[in-house]
């Protein structure tokens, strides 16, 4: 259970990224957050694991406050929240396996991190995570040698290796081509359904959002302007969220035809 209570974020310079957001996310849901760039999607997601600190209000994950957590408590909380990034954020100069093992580092002794020697258990977790995204054969390949879609699957494996209760995905398909986008979205859907991990995904393509979102939350200038089931989000709803008429850029399939 994730709950936002009057959460606000104001960046230095006076930009209001989130305004007084109150929101409850029950466990196991697959949620898609939509909105224009700059609407506060990224901030909302990063508030959950404390990468962006709130300037007002509170966020709680399973009852624990993110805003009041100490450094160590915050790291423990982050260990239970996996994250996937638009640009994959892999260390390209090292192996796929080393990248996935990063997901295990919260429980690792400092000297093990220093030497890069993880316990056999952690190795097993990492391997299973790679098997789940069907890329285990690349375990000892340098991350830079993978395609974009493969790199994002490694990113997912890294998050899975954490054994997370919550998975945050910040524009996971924005750097991918349409067919690969569907592969990655289906991976996320499967993880959500088979493992019961609460999954929160930022997207800006409305067709993807409708197809994969159990629940859709629309953000506009830091305010929640829509919160409902995926099938209820018709074009009028998206026009309201975007504050303008829809264009070909808002639809993945249209992009595919170009």
């Amino acid at each position: 259970m994730i709950s936002f209570k009057n959460a606000s974020v104001t960046y230095p310079g006076g930009v209001h990224a989130l305004r007084d957001v109150t929101l409850d996310i029950p466990p196991g849901q697959m949620i898609v957050i939509v909105g224009l760039s700059g609407a506060g999607k990224s901030t909302l997601i990063r508030a959950i694991n404390g990468l962006v600190p709130l300037t007002g209000g509170d966020v709680r994950v399973d009852g624990r406050s993110v805003t009041q957590a100490s450094g160590r408590q915050l790291r423990e909380l982050r260990a239970e929240v996996g994250m996937i990034f638009q640009t994959f954020n892999l260390v390209k100069r090292t192996t796929v396996l080393n990248n996935v093992l990063m997901g295990r580092m919260h429980g690792t002794a400092w000297w093990r991190t220093l030497l890069g020697r993880y316990p056999a258990d952690d190795l097993e977790y990492a391997m299973r995570a790679l098997e789940r995204v069907e890329i285990v054969e690349k375990a000892y390949v340098r991350a830079s040698n993978l395609s974009g879609g493969q790199q994002q699957r490694v990113g997912i494996a890294r998050a899975l290796a954490q054994e997370p209760k919550v998975l945050l995905a910040d524009e996971p398909v924005a750097s991918l081509d349409p067919p690969t986008s569907h592969v990655v979205m289906r991976d996320l859907q499967r993880i959500n359904r088979e493992l019961g991990i609460t999954t929160i995904v930022n997207l800006h393509f409305l067709d993807l959002a409708r197809q994969y979102g159990e629940r859709i939350i629309g953000l506009r200038e830091g305010d929640i302007v829509f919160d409902g089931r995926g099938e209820d989000a018709d074009e009028q709803v998206f026009r309201d969220i975007y504050g303008r008429s829809l264009t070909a850029d808002d639809v993945l399939e249209a992009k595919a035809e170009l």
Binding site: L51, R75, E76, R78, M83, N89, M102, M105, H106
Partner: peptide, 12 residues
């Protein structure tokens, strides 16, 4: 990016 990922995974 990778540093942010490590931070998000709970690394110090």
């Amino acid at each position: 990016g990778p540093s942010e990922a490590a931070q998000a995974a709970g690394g110090n």
